[in-house]
């Protein structure tokens, strides 16, 4: 999940709602899509901007840990696949910023908030990618966890967000597959490769579980977002689903999930598993993860160094518009 702890506006009961709000909620309950020009409660708009913005930021910051290995990819084919994948993530950022723009916030404003630290991105991208096996683990687990969350979001109530999710989900399953393919190669490879694969799983397992956000009992913003169909499942539901699907995949690879308490629970029909270290999670969210500073610095530097480039392009656009106007006047 790329949106964690998105602050939502307080939940209102049907009696507290204005007639407009009630009609709006009824539309959502009927699974109608809300489109940009239509009336919506201010809280709905604000919550969506936070969530879509955070999701968009996660896509572009998410380019960095994987971009880290493009120049070191071990074969031409792996290099091409990884490049295509990271390029897709930038594309996802683009769709999502566009979806956010329909709510009246510009991409530049959202960037500004990312750079100042006012907006967050997913905690997962603050972890380093240390070996090639991490390209496998990220695709398999991180894109895997993202899919868990994004597939239901295809049915979200806000039209542009839902449509962005539909496009994105198509690509995410390719991402997960390429990650798993890397893991398979590594897990069946030399002892060193297998060691790297296990180490990558050890490092990414709990951070991947954190992607779904805090436990439901500590998740204060869920109810309203779920009523608005901005959030489709609870954090714990999705985390459980992820564990249930991922554990057999790890077994197939011959790798060990780093959780001694992990057990199939026949009664529940689910795996029992250990919670991640939530203290670590809150520290990472606060900015104290292993790579927070580097990630944010990389984004800021790219933006600052690109100022002259963006200015150059807009100056040219202004000039050519002026030239076109002058030409029209001259022709008249």
């Amino acid at each position: 999940m790329y949106a964690q702890m998105v602050k939502s506006e307080g939940m209102k009961s049907a009696d507290e709602m204005s007639p407009e709000e009630r009609a709006f909620q009824e539309r959502i309950d009927r699974n109608e899509k809300i489109e940009p020009k239509e009336w919506m409660p201010e809280g709905y708009r604000k919550t969506l901007i936070r969530q879509i913005g955070q999701h968009a930021h996660s896509e572009i910051v998410g380019q960095l840990p994987e971009g880290n290995w493009i120049t070191r990819a071990p074969t031409l084919e792996r290099k091409a696949i990884l490049l295509a994948k990271v390029q897709d993530e930038a594309g996802h950022g683009l769709y999502l910023y566009s979806a956010a723009e329909t709510l009246g916030v510009s991409r530049d404003e959202l960037f500004e908030k990312l750079h100042s630290g006012a907006m967050k991105y997913s905690s997962i991208f603050n972890y380093p990618t240390l070996t090639w096996a991490d390209m496998g683990a990220v695709g398999w687990l991180v894109d895997g966890a993202a899919i868990m969350n994004q597939v239901p979001l295809q049915r979200t109530s806000y039209g542009p967000y839902s449509r962005a999710m539909i496009r994105i989900c198509k690509e995410e399953s390719f991402h997960q597959r390429q990650g798993y393919a890397i893991m398979m190669k590594m897990a069946e490879g030399t002892p060193e490769q297998k060691e790297m694969a296990q180490d990558a799983l050890n490092r990414f397992w709990y951070p991947a579980l954190m992607m779904f956000g805090p436990s439901d009992k500590d998740s204060v913003h869920s109810a309203q977002s779920m009523a608005w169909k901005i959030k489709m499942n609870t954090n714990d539901e999705l985390r459980q689903k992820f564990v249930d699907e991922t554990v057999p995949q790890a077994e197939y690879l011959g790798l060990t999930v780093p959780d001694e308490t992990l057990r199939w629970n026949d009664e529940r029909g689910h795996y029992d598993f250990a919670e991640p270290d939530w203290e670590e999670f809150f520290e990472v969210i606060k900015g104290n993860g292993p790579c927070n500073r580097e990630r944010l610095e990389a984004r800021r530097t790219a933006w600052d160094n690109g100022q002259w480039f963006r200015d150059g392009l807009s100056a040219y656009a202004d000039k050519s518009a002026a030239r076109r106007r002058a030409a029209t006047v001259a022709a008249e």
Partner: peptide
């Protein structure tokens, strides 16, 4: 490809990655 994630604008980042991808394909 070294530009990936560090481009001056999102569109440019995508275009650069795309160019690199084409060139690796030619390789």
């Amino acid at each position: 490809s070294e530009w990936c994630g560090h481009g001056p604008a999102l569109e440019e980042d995508i275009a650069l990655a795309n160019t690199a991808l084409d060139l690796i394909g030619h390789t």
